[in-house]
Nucleic acid binder design. Structure first.
Lengths: 224, 224, 224, 224
DNA sequence: TATGAATGAGAGTTCATTCAT
DNA sequence: TATGAATGAACTCTCATTCAT
């Protein structure tokens, strides 16, 4: 496949680029197949490196997928945060959900990775890695929570974080269903299966809209 | 040593009992360990059979866990249905959620299995198995939806099914987080991780309450 | 190599035979090559089994070589014990050494395995395995020590065991030198290397003879 | 970060010093761990050089350990030779052994390296290296043999060399046993294992004493 | 001379599944 | 029907060595 020798990553930038190349290879493969079918061997092959080289950049397969998840998650968090920062005034629930929907567009991979996180963090991960991941996530979520509480004034303090947690939960839950295996896809094409065929991305946002509406409604009733 | 073969299951009842023994063995083991640590070898040992015998009753490991999931799911669906049928009048949202919470009590295993379903249905399952599972689920959910729509009159037709889907989604999402790996458990004990340490069972029902409140509120506004 | 399926080892005898076949395969290979070149893969191939099958009989590569060592060691111990039991009267040192030499004949493999023991017991061995090996060795050596003390009356109580330990030490030490690698063999053929080319089997027995002579001489002087 | 390259060794002295630094690093590490756990990577790190640089000074890992062995062996040979040269008159066996014991003190590393030699010389060593090592050893041993024959007059010509060979053999044999792996150490702590727990350094010298005594006794009887 | 990124063969091991008995 | 020995592909990961820089 590649007779030509791989150009060596000599400086820090090149090393970062190489690391990125591995992540990108893994990402591609994960788009095409499921987690278990993405072996270290094919990640190496895809990124044009030897197996051992991949291990220079990532200690384990889990570390690759944790990094990938972090990357995709941060990407989305940034996009969402940016969109929220553009808002100077309180938002209607529908406006909020529209923004959310926008930022979710084309982030199917992120959804799948987030659904996978549990599995990945279950095995072969050190305390330090898990801790770093979670801490980073907390920091990002805290910042975002503040913003959310600003644009949705009916939220009490702390409810921003809760809302994001619920969202996370919804993403995981719907993420599992939104990428069926080939066999399942076939099953869902059967006319009898129509009720299960609903667009699950749509479902997340419908659910989330109701959720917001409910929180708002409860908050208004409490203030009476 | 080899003389102690298990008495053969000759009639249908005995075969059903044996099948059940395997499922019960697998269930026990899954309570103690995670999916990947429950091997066919120990399922066989636990149910007092030989490895080959297990394969007479289940074609694959996935089939066992699919059956187990069906069983647990049906159990819960029945319990919930029974409780709803006892109600002759419309319920308050809080009453509905209380019933839901009641039926969830002690069904931690079901939650974990439902979270696993995606993984299990992804691999090594035939069209027929997947179809049968889904069809059965649809039938049960349809029946339940009707009931739900009866006790929650603000729901439009079809919203009962949606509500159950959302619930499913919440269960999956929170199910993943509610059984962390040993390492993750340790991480969560750190003071910094307090925000992630919320009781996730509680969260499901809080979220679900808001959801219901939102649906009700929307429905009321529409009818004006 | 073997299209024909392997006949299954159904009863205990056949299983013992299969275990033996694996050991024999490993033994053959160890005769032809050194420890590190004898991989589990070729042991399996040589004994006409799949790699996984070998692992049904031995948990690790180390267990194979520990078993092999035990086997060879016991073989020699038995042979030596038998020869000593035939003696009804005290032996001259030279007679004793002659018997020893006889029983060592053709046991080159045993010498190499004993030299390897340290390496094998160093890694990947459980406490239980190591303990069982050592305990067995102790029992055998104790019994043999008694005999040795009988046929060599100048030995004080306990000196039989010491003598066997010294012998063990000599066997290990000379065992290392007696199977040079191909390169070393070539080096030793050089005329300059003549002093190193001495027959090391001979050396063991010369050394051992002096040792016995020394012990006898010391014992006689003490009794004066 | 990459600027902190090590200052280049331009003249011969510096190169010798660098070579020595590598050997010293390896020595330190070998004291702390066993041969297989001492990787080229950590030798490089310990000696403050890059992996590639180590290979400028030593072609293989084996060459490092062969050099180390040579160094330690020569050290001891020198010490022993010096001590013997101080003697103007024939020595009693016990005096000889006392000197031997003195020079062995604190040379545990040498013992372990000598025990390793077989392994190291077995693999990955060129004819030239092996030859050079052996030739050097022969020269040193020849010189020492002469001395030994002088201080122990009962030795016939050539027996000095034999005696040293026997000593070598004893050192190797006992060297293996004197540094048990952690597991083996634990096993030996068991009360049942008492007989194997003898102090092996003591054993070498006891054995060697008997050996000398035997040689002396035989020589005296022959001269009658 | 010095670097350290890249190599890649090969290691031991696991386990769902098959099939001769 | 029941067994469990046999399978073998697949797995992750290591490390002495090379060589472009």
């Amino acid at each position: 496949m590649n007779n030509s020798h791989v150009r060596r990553a000599t400086n820090e930038d090149q090393k970062i680029a190489r690391r990125q190349a591995i992540l990108d290879g893994a990402r591609q493969l994960f788009v095409e197949a499921d987690y278990f079918d993405v072996s270290m061997a094919i990640i190496a092959k895809r990124s044009g490196l030897a197996k051992g080289t991949v291990y220079l950049y990532f200690k384990t397969k889990e570390e690759i997928f944790l990094s990938l998840s972090t990357e995709e998650l941060e990407n989305w968090l940034s996009a969402f945060e940016t969109r929220l920062r553009e808002q100077v005034r309180p938002l209607e629930n529908t406006e909020f959900v529209d923004i959310l929907r926008d930022t979710f567009m084309g982030r199917h991979l992120m959804q799948r990775l987030v659904s996978l996180l549990h599995l990945v963090l279950e095995k072969n991960i050190t305390y330090e890695e898990a801790f770093a991941f979670k801490l980073n996530l907390k920091t990002r979520m805290n910042r975002l929570s503040k913003l959310v509480e600003q644009v949705l004034p009916f939220l009490a303090e702390g409810q921003g974080f809760s809302l994001l947690s619920m969202l996370h939960c919804l993403v995981v839950g719907s993420g599992q269903m939104s990428d069926p295996s080939p066999v399942l896809k076939q099953v869902l094409e059967h006319p009898e299966m129509e009720p299960f065929r609903v667009d699950l991305e749509k479902d997340i946002f419908d659910t989330f809209s109701f959720l917001l509406e409910g929180m708002k409604s409860v908050s208004e009733n409490q203030s009476c």
